[in-house]
Design a protein around this nucleic acid. Sequence first.
DNA 1: GTCTATAATGGGATAGAC
DNA 2: GTCTATCCCATTATAGAC
Lengths: 188, 188
Amino acid sequence: MDTRTALLDSAERAARQRGFDAFSYADLARDVGIRKASIHHHFPKKADLAFDLLERYASAFMDTLAQIEAIDRSAAHKLSAYLDLYRDAVDGGTQLCLCVAFSAGRANLPDPVLQRLNQFHEDSAAWLKRVFTEAETDGSIPGVSDPAAEAHATLALMEGAQLLSRAAGEISPFDRATASFRSRLSTQ
Amino acid sequence: MDTRTALLDSAERAARQRGFDAFSYADLARDVGIRKASIHHHFPKKADLAFDLLERYASAFMDTLAQIEAIDRSAAHKLSAYLDLYRDAVDGGTQLCLCVAFSAGRANLPDPVLQRLNQFHEDSAAWLKRVFTEAETDGSIPGVSDPAAEAHATLALMEGAQLLSRAAGEISPFDRATASFRSRLSTQ
DNA sequence: GTCTATAATGGGATAGAC
DNA sequence: GTCTATCCCATTATAGAC
């Protein structure tokens, strides 16, 4: 495999498990099997690594959302797939979605990274708003009156549920926190 | 003021703004006006500081919740006060509740700290469950069918909303994420 | 309880050979 | 593209004087 890709993979795992500031180039070097000085050839500064990591993750995530949106199923079904995406990312309480990990980390992330992060949040909220609007039409989710408000609440719920789950080291807090949301989706 | 208290105050502000690993004894020393070696007299290891910080914060938070619970008002009113507590803690997008900051930080926190953190989450969920149960009786919140599920969802919503707000550096994401929840409380 | 001084370690980053 | 060697800096932590 491409060294650059191997580095990104290793960094992503570390960032999602322990936080972006909690792993070093030395850790990466050990994991990938090269010397730490070599990493600077691919990512001159750690801030470069942060940006490329987030860029790769966020665009892949958005691609997945686009695929979910494109299928010909109810809004409830799409939101169920969205929920599973966040649930799978937790990996039994050991990981966070990279974007949650970045939101959680020190606010000292370089500005381009913070901007990219907020763009991800906006894109996610926009996607959710579209699906909740669809729900108003297809009637697959009860009690939707304000799609924009539902979108932001859902995003916060996902991020908070991941946080609780990783703090506990178990998946169960995620399931407890999202149980009401999930049951709303199956009331069709 | 007590040096120890001054240190705890300074550390709390720093941890909630930038994360527990993102401030050093040198920062604290500058802020409080003593030398960094002197801090070790009060908190031998940084892990000791982490624990005492969380202990002080969590018990003060729980005291506040107890006061809210004791007043003779509707469940909706109590949850509204709870929401304001989290909203105020954000301080316009610059801070997190200490417990959110600890949940967010690297999972490498010493074990006693992690345990105390999870106890806080359990205590919070228990408080919320009691208030939602009260709501079933007093009818001040519409559509409560599973108080335990509502409790965990509410906790996750608060934590996620804070995270989004601090990432943006503004209070508005918190308000957007909690708008639906808030409007549910005023439908009495 | 606070100080000066000093470990001891590990971090990101660079220069220059191969 | 990867290596060795090195730099500079920040960090937590300790010893011992006052």
